[in-house]
Computed example of a mutant assay.
Amino acid sequence: MQTPDGAWRVEIVRRHRTRWYRIVHGEDVLDWLSIAAVERILDEAGVDRHLLTEVRIDPGRLTRPRRAG
């Protein structure tokens, strides 16, 4: 999902039986997030989560994961 302007993107990442969330904002990538953490980060940034729309990501354009910390 992403904001209408594409500035914020939330990705669901699945590997085997594990699932987590990733936020991409410009060059910044926050990885290994829970849904609660995603909601908190977007709220703190002033992003209206109700405006997020579903998008399909080209697998060739996926970002390199980094652990949130």
Rank of each mutant, 00 (worst) to 15 (best):
26 G>H: 10
44 E>Y: 03
14 R>F: 09
15 R>K: 13
7 A>V: 13
28 D>L: 02
14 R>L: 08
8 W>T: 05
1 M>A: 11
35 I>K: 15
13 V>W: 10
61 R>I: 08
36 A>F: 13
14 R>P: 01
29 V>F: 13
23 I>A: 00
52 L>W: 03
14 R>C: 06
14 R>N: 10
14 R>D: 11
51 L>C: 14
45 A>C: 08
31 D>G: 12
57 I>F: 00
49 R>A: 06
65 P>M: 06
16 H>V: 02
1 M>G: 06
14 R>S: 12
25 H>V: 02
18 T>V: 09
45 A>S: 08
44 E>T: 11
45 A>N: 03
23 I>F: 00
44 E>W: 03
23 I>Q: 00
45 A>V: 11
40 R>A: 13
37 A>Y: 05
52 L>V: 07
25 H>P: 10
19 R>H: 12
2 Q>V: 03
18 T>R: 06
59 P>F: 02
65 P>S: 06
17 R>K: 09
67 R>K: 09
69 G>L: 15
13 V>A: 15
40 R>Q: 13
35 I>S: 14
21 Y>F: 14
43 D>G: 12
42 L>C: 06
37 A>S: 14
15 R>V: 15
59 P>N: 10
22 R>P: 08
68 A>F: 07
17 R>W: 05
13 V>F: 08
19 R>L: 13
33 L>K: 12
55 V>Q: 12
17 R>T: 06
43 D>F: 14
23 I>Y: 00
38 V>A: 07
32 W>Y: 05
46 G>A: 09
55 V>E: 14
9 R>K: 03
25 H>G: 02
25 H>S: 05
25 H>W: 02
13 V>S: 09
6 G>V: 03
67 R>E: 11
16 H>G: 02
11 E>Y: 01
12 I>W: 09
13 V>G: 12
44 E>V: 14
11 E>R: 10
57 I>D: 00
31 D>E: 04
12 I>K: 13
62 L>T: 10
30 L>H: 06
4 P>Y: 00
37 A>T: 11
15 R>A: 13
31 D>Q: 13
8 W>Y: 07
5 D>V: 10
33 L>H: 05
48 D>L: 07
68 A>Q: 04
66 R>A: 07
47 V>F: 09
34 S>K: 08
8 W>M: 01
24 V>A: 04
41 I>C: 00
26 G>Y: 13
55 V>G: 07
32 W>G: 01
5 D>Y: 05
21 Y>C: 04
38 V>I: 12
17 R>N: 14
68 A>T: 04
21 Y>N: 05
20 W>Y: 14
10 V>I: 03
5 D>F: 10
15 R>Y: 15
7 A>S: 13
53 T>G: 15
60 G>S: 04
14 R>V: 14
46 G>T: 11
59 P>V: 03
52 L>P: 04
28 D>T: 03
61 R>V: 05
48 D>C: 14
48 D>H: 08
60 G>P: 00
44 E>C: 10
64 R>K: 04
11 E>N: 05
57 I>C: 00
58 D>L: 08
60 G>C: 03
39 E>W: 11
34 S>H: 06
2 Q>K: 03
47 V>L: 09
63 T>L: 01
65 P>F: 10
68 A>E: 02
14 R>G: 08
69 G>C: 14
13 V>Q: 12
41 I>W: 01
48 D>N: 11
13 V>L: 14
33 L>F: 12
13 V>E: 15
26 G>M: 09
6 G>Y: 03
4 P>Q: 04
7 A>F: 07
42 L>D: 01
